[in-house]
Design a protein around this nucleic acid. Structure first.
Lengths: 175, 175
DNA sequence: GTCTATACTTCGATAGAC
DNA sequence: GTCTATCGAAGTATAGAC
């Protein structure tokens, strides 16, 4: 581990995630990941013996980040709903990047990635349901969050989307 | 063109889309496409000189399908909103497949695919706005549709999602 | 219009030096 | 812990027979 900056292992996962987000899984080759992390391919494969292990490492980190996010949501000063919507817009945080990257892997039909995402979504939904006391409303808010997310990751985001959502939800006495 | 069934060119695009949906763009290789369409790789490359041309062909077909969909939305018996939500859930139609496949390509940072999707979304939004007479509401409904879509394509769909959305929208006097 | 054969490139992974 | 060298498999694309 270098004295400056993050450990190589983390830099590799960072690079992997960034490439997945920016170029999709087709662009996230071991060569590209190693280059982006300023390590040789051999160096990469010392830390992760295969591409599969690299995915595994990313998912492990996501679970830790996810647990922290759910905790923050539970105790958010402006309430869980507001926190959820706010963080559904890609802010460029490490957690956002990890989430988008994982969605890319999930779309390649990887059950581990799908299940990691499903677990997180279940936790979010539980919070939304508890804070709204309304299953249908909680489900709808979650869908809106998913939509915000999808738009962001496909380059289709409308910048006034979030304020419009707030306006509509306030009509439902949610915000 | 064989007397039975679709022309080879269409069968190739069909196969390309199906592979994109089921395995992502990593699985949609020329080999796999050719095999799925029951054609040799050479046969494929007679119709499409490169993978890029195959994408081009898919997008061309999507634009035609998209124009038809917008027209159907405009004249839908139960209204544009209902039609939009109903068709946001993957029904397995050809158009759904084309849409999901195109989203996969857009995520690989392909501006042609992104712009084709953006055009379609703009048309949908225009219809939603006209039929609701409310920009914020139209935007929110579009986000819900995006969310339904995203969940379907990531294997995260909740089967009661659509009925919950209907319940909430009826509180807003939309449905 | 479709096939086989083949050239070239890139990918994932191993081996072994330092 | 990191590097270079190398291998086999798979990817895109071309050439030419049928």
């Amino acid at each position: 581990m270098p004295v400056d900056g993050r450990p190589t292992r983390d830099r590799l996962i960072d690079a992997f995630e960034s490439l997945l987000v920016s170029s999709g899984s087709r662009g996230a080759t071991l060569d590209a990941v190693a280059a982006a992390a300023d390590v040789s391919k051999g160096g990469l494969l010392y830390h992760f013996h295969s591409k599969d292990e690299l995915v595994e490492g990313m998912l492990e980190r996501l679970r830790v980040q996810g647990a922290a996010d759910v905790e923050k949501m539970r105790t958010a000063p402006n309430g869980a709903v507001d926190f959820y919507l706010e963080t559904s817009v890609d802010s460029g945080s490490d957690f956002d990047r990890a989430l988008i990257a994982t969605a890319r892997i999930a779309q390649e039909n990887d059950p581990r990635a799908s299940s990691a995402l499903a677990d997180l979504r279940e936790a979010w939904f539980a919070e939304l349901r508890e804070h709204t006391g309304d299953e249908a409303l909680a489900r709808t808010i979650q869908l809106i969050g998913d939509g915000l997310y999808f738009d962001d990751t496909t380059g289709l985001a409308a910048d006034d989307a979030l304020s419009h959502v707030r306006a509509v939800l306030s009509r439902l006495d949610v915000l």
